[in-house]
């Protein structure tokens, strides 16, 4: 019997064992866990805060133009929709700030990496406390309650 060619070998389903790739990327110590999600959230909140900062420097610069110009723009910040935007901004800043402190502890604290997951949940807990303190106050201001 002549030697089989490589082509006919590959075509034979019984000749080669089938190795199926995993349906989704298999877990690693890093991927898909607290470390990854804190990193993702840090990037997203950072970009959002950065673009707000650009706008905020420009709108504040209007104090140098005239009181009327500044008031006209800042009054749009007092509408309910922008008020919700400010709430989201404070939420983003709070998360970025608290997770930033967590990053510093991971980098400089001798057992920081060991406790990074616990620190992530502490960050979330402190963030929730921050929002419980801020959001009702902000809603009173923007929706006119408690005046």
């Amino acid at each position: 019997m002549p030697d089989k060619s490589a082509g006919s070998l590959a075509a034979d389903p019984l000749a080669l064992p089938k190795i199926r790739p995993p349906k989704r990327p298999a877990g690693t110590l890093y991927r898909g866990r607290e470390g990854m999600w804190s990193w993702v959230l840090h990037r997203i909140t950072g970009v959002a805060i950065y673009f707000f900062l650009l706008v905020h420097i420009l709108d504040t610069a209007l104090v140098r133009v005239s009181p009327e110009a500044y008031n006209a723009v800042i009054n749009t910040y007092k509408t309910p929709i922008m008020g919700l935007g400010e709430t989201a901004l404070v939420a983003a800043i709070g998360l970025h700030a608290l997770n930033g402190l967590r990053i510093i502890l991971i980098d400089f604290w001798s057992v920081g990496t060991k406790h990074q997951r616990l620190m992530f949940y502490i960050v979330i807990a402190l963030w929730v406390v921050l929002l419980i303190a801020f959001v009702p106050r902000q809603f009173m201001h923007i929706f006119g309650g408690g005046e």
Partner: peptide, 13 residues
């Protein structure tokens, strides 16, 4: 945003 009237107090003055 928090003290006093919050965002409503912000104007040129």
């Amino acid at each position: 945003l928090v003290a006093g009237e919050g965002v409503n107090a912000i104007d040129f003055a």
